[in-house]
Structures are given as structure tokens and as C-alpha cells.
Simulated scan of single mutants.
Amino acid sequence: MDQRDEQEFAKYFAAKRDFVRRSAFLLCGDWHRADDLAQTAFVALHRKWSGIRDRGAVDAYLRKTLVRAAIDESRRPWRRERQVDLLPEPEPAAGRLDDQVATRTDLINGLRDVPPKQRAVLVMRYFEGLDVAAVAKALGCSEGNVKSQTARGLANLRTALGAEVETHG
């Protein structure tokens, strides 16, 4: 990679690093793992940087790489086990989501219980504000698949939070 490409990449990295890290956090629910996922995505992008002709497609490539890294990481056997000190007592669900989710932490904990592909769709649709077509393109699947993953993901999030999830979009 020549000096000009390195400078362009450094500028792009500086502009996008915080956004990618936040997206990674929403995908995995842990800041340390989010840093690893963001780094993995940026390293993959750096490898391809000089060969990318359409600089307008860089965000989509980075997003796709990030989501795939999160899904791959979630498939590792040691990620399926969780140690807890006390078993949680189920609380009766009543009211709307905004009454139940008092903090961002509650939402992040709820997202952890949603399967990785569904979580990725929810993050891209509701956090990044992408439409169904853009999510389908980013994940390399059909729009129908995105719609069904969204519906299943919201159902799983409702179950995890024990509340009705209101969506607009």
C-alpha cells in the first residue's frame, strides 16, 4: 500500500472508529469483545483498501465484515457458556418496553439473549437506521430473510425483556 492509501485509510479509520466500536458493542454486549470485533473489521478492510475502487462502498464492506466477525465469534464454544452467581427470578411483565427498560444496560442485556444473526439485523435496522434492502445487501441475504429475522429477533428480545417491544419502521 502506498503512502497516499495509508493516509486515506488513517483518515477513514479516525472518522469511523467510534461508530464501528459502538455498533460492535451492540452486537456482542461487551466492550472488550467490541474492541476485538472492530479491530478485526478494520484489519480486514486495511488488507483490501488499495483494491477498493468504489470508496462509497467502504461503509457497507466494513459493516458486513463486522457483523460476520460477531457471528463467527458467537459460534465459538466458550462463548455459549455463562457463569452466574444467582439464578434470576422472573418478574411479571407489565406495561410497555419504555417502562421496563430503565437503562441502556437492560437493553444490552436483553440483546445478549437474542441469537447473533437476529441481533445483527436488529442493530442494523434500529440502531444504524438501515432499511430492509440495505440490511439484506449488507448480510448477503434476501429481504424476506431480513424481515423474518427481524420478527424473530423482536420476539426473542420481548421474551428476554419480558415486555412488549414497540417498533417504528
Rank of each mutant, 00 (worst) to 15 (best):
K64Q: 14
R53Q: 01
L139S: 08
I108G: 01
K64S: 14
H168A: 04
A102V: 11
A155K: 12
R17D: 11
A151S: 10
T105F: 09
A60T: 09
V132E: 14
I108Q: 03
R104Q: 13
L139E: 11
A14V: 05
D99S: 15
Q83H: 13
P88H: 15
A38E: 05
K147F: 12
L27K: 04
E8H: 11
R96S: 14
R125T: 05
F127D: 09
W78N: 12
R96T: 13
A120C: 07
K147D: 13
N156G: 03
P90E: 15
D30Y: 02
R152E: 09
A138W: 14
F13Q: 10
A10P: 00
S148E: 12
T105K: 15
L37F: 01
R21K: 11
W49V: 04
R63M: 06
A93G: 11
L97R: 15
F9D: 09
R80F: 13
R47H: 01
V43T: 05
D85G: 10
M124S: 09
Q83R: 14
R79Q: 14
I52T: 04
R152L: 10
E91R: 14
Q83K: 15
D5C: 09
A102H: 14
V58G: 04
F25A: 01
M124A: 11
I52F: 02
Y12S: 07
A163L: 06
D85Y: 15
K48H: 06
H168M: 01
L154E: 07
V165C: 00
L97C: 13
S23H: 02
R68M: 08
T150A: 11
V84Q: 14
T167F: 04
M1T: 09
R17L: 06
R119I: 00
A136V: 08
T167D: 02
R4H: 12
L157H: 07
E8D: 13
K64M: 06
A34R: 03
D85S: 12
A44V: 04
E73D: 10
L27M: 03
D36W: 05
T150H: 08
M1Y: 12
A120D: 09
H32L: 06
S23D: 05
V165I: 06
L161V: 01
T40L: 04
A10Q: 11
R21E: 11
T150G: 05
D5F: 10
R82D: 13
V58W: 01
V135D: 02
Q3C: 04
R96C: 13
F25G: 03
T105N: 13
T40N: 00
Q100I: 10
A15Y: 03
D36L: 04
G144H: 13
I71T: 05
A138N: 11
V84R: 14
L87G: 08
A134T: 08
R125W: 06
A138I: 09
R68C: 04
V67R: 06
R47D: 01
H168F: 04
D5N: 11
H168Y: 04
L111S: 03
R75N: 13
D113F: 02
R125A: 01
D59H: 03
R33F: 03
M1F: 08
D72P: 02
R158N: 07
R47E: 01
R152H: 09
W31V: 07
V123L: 07
L130H: 07
N145P: 00
E89Y: 14
A44L: 03
Q100L: 10
L86A: 14
P88N: 15
Q7R: 13
G144L: 12
A151N: 09
H32S: 10
G110E: 05
P90M: 09
D131M: 07
N145C: 09
F42V: 00
L111D: 05
